[in-house]
Design a protein around this nucleic acid. Structure first.
Length: 422
RNA sequence: GGAUGGGUGGCCGAGUGGUCUAAGGCGGCAGUCUUGAAAACUGCUGUGCGCGUUCGCGCACCGGGGGUUCGAAUCCCUCCCCAUCCGCCA
């Protein structure tokens, strides 16, 4: 959420930003409601002040008659206050969803519009095959690495069993990413796979509604998390940190659940778009002047991880029209997926500035100074297992249908090649 | 799942209807003392919103929400969380 005062003082900027992002919000209605809210709040403050004065005077009343008269006046004032409060609540009920739908500001260097801008390539060149490359579904079937049919019986379309070396690859990928992040001073965490809706909303997800990506648990205020960003950000909700503690870097392993409502077709074949996957996520809480550098750092780590895996990729500077609400700037790594014959998103890192911190109420205090300030939050994918698997299988496939294991994963996988079983 | 006790400022902790304008302590800031530091002593020290915009004034906030009352940290209802014990269990 943006700051209310900031919106009032920067109407044109906010309108232009919404336009750049292709988000339609009635800013004029927001202004109208916010000004109305402010005047109602002043009115309520005045009525409360008068009522408080009357209440205090009752103890000092001379006689019973005067006391009763004052009680009547107090009662009248409290009733007026209650009716103003009711109107205030109605205004807030209309205003709050509008405020929440206004996206974060956009980094001045982010591309405007809908066109992704490639800003870098990985160290690994695109593979050259002297045979028609298979996609990961075909490879998975030949090598007995995944089972979509059984998963469909158990849980429906969009689920999968990983089997054999694919399981070892999942473990190896987790271990590899965690090792890199541990060396970089991240605190390691496994996180809850469920979170309160309040936390989801603070991060910027809508747990209910027709277009939600979120599975919610009936009869509770909990939802399955779509990413550990939710739980890691929620970790410090309502906390006041000391400035010296920042930046805080945490990596979290969680399962991620997504309804993927409405997404079907060739792009969703196999592991590419699934309802559940495991992810190692990076998260940071920073001072405002640290967040730009932290985003570059996260991007650098993602590159290091995929360079280390020997997977070719390109880096995308996400254009304004594709940014999610909380993101101020976002980079994606897109790995080359020979079976698809195109690049596919494997990581995403965003600087959300104070947009999430405002609703989650995560602040910091500078020693010797009065008041508190909102922290900045950032998130980034270290490894999303399902998509990393696609990239590994398709890039490392051999003419005979076997798949070579990336060197950095061999210690955990325990072999250097996956051979056909049938 | 059952029982009991709890949730108060950055932290600890007192507070069972009206000088709560929330005691006291810790921490923090400033000062005295000191060559310097520590200790000791003295004073100041919550957050948010609004108005005046030097000084200040008002409102809200004692886990969340609702209620009783002229008046609630305090009484009632409800939800959440924490601790301990019991039950169950990987």
């Amino acid at each position: 959420m943006l700051d209310r005062k900031f919106i009032l003082e920067n109407v044109d900027l906010v309108k232009q930003n919404c336009a750049n992002r292709g988000v339609r919000v009635e800013i004029d209605r927001v202004l109208e409601l916010e000004n109305h809210r402010k005047s109602l709040q002043s009115e309520l403050d005045q009525l409360n002040r008068q009522a408080n004065e009357v209440s205090k005077s009752i103890g000092k009343a001379k006689d019973a008659a005067q006391r009763e008269a004052l009680k009547d006046e107090g009662r009248r004032l409290r009733e007026s206050a209650a009716s103003v409060q009711g109107e205030l609540n109605r205004v807030a009920a209309e205003l709050d969803p509008l405020l929440r739908s206004i996206p974060n500001l956009t980094h001045p260097a982010a591309p405007i519009g809908m066109e992704p801008v490639e800003v870098g390539r990985g160290k690994t060149p695109l593979p050259v095959f002297d045979f028609p490359p298979r996609d990961h579904v075909e490879l998975g079937e030949k090598l007995d690495l995944m089972d979509f049919e059984s998963a469909a019986r158990v849980a429906g379309h969009g689920f999968y069993f990983l089997k054999n070396e694919a399981v070892l690859l999942e473990l190896a990928l987790q271990r590899y990413a965690v090792d890199v992040l541990m060396q970089e001073g991240f605190t390691l965490a496994t996180t809850p796979d469920l979170a309160r809706n309040e936390i989801l909303e603070g991060i910027g997800y809508l747990p209910r509604g027709p277009e939600t990506q979120i599975y919610s648990i009936e009869g509770t205020d909990l939802s399955l998390v779509a990413t550990a960003e939710i739980t890691l950000g929620g970790m410090l909700a309502d906390q006041i940190l000391d400035a010296e503690q920042l930046p805080i870097k945490i990596c979290g392993i969680s399962h991620c659940f997504r309804t993927e409502a409405g997404a079907h077709g060739r792009q969703t074949r196999g592991l590419f778009r699934v309802h559940q996957f495991t992810k190692v996520e990076m998260f940071a809480f920073t001072l405002p002047d640290q967040s730009d550098a932290m985003l570059e750092y996260f991007r650098g780590l993602e590159c290091r991880i995929f360079d280390g895996l020997g997977i070719p990729y390109r880096v995308i500077d996400t254009p304004s029209g594709d940014l999610g609400g909380p993101a101020y700037r976002k980079y994606d790594l897109e790995a080359w997926m020979p079976g698809r014959g195109e690049f596919g998103e494997v990581t995403s890192t965003s600087n959300c500035t104070d947009y999430q911190a405002r609703r989650l109420n995560i602040r910091y205090r500078v020693k010797g100074e009065k008041g508190t300030h909102l922290v900045h939050t950032l998130n980034g994918t270290a490894i999303a297992i399902s998509r990393a698997l696609i990239a590994i299988l398709e890039n490392y496939q051999q003419a005979d249908g076997s798949v070579v294991i990336p060197e950095v994963l061999r210690p955990v996988v325990g072999k250097d090649k996956i051979l056909a079983r049938r």
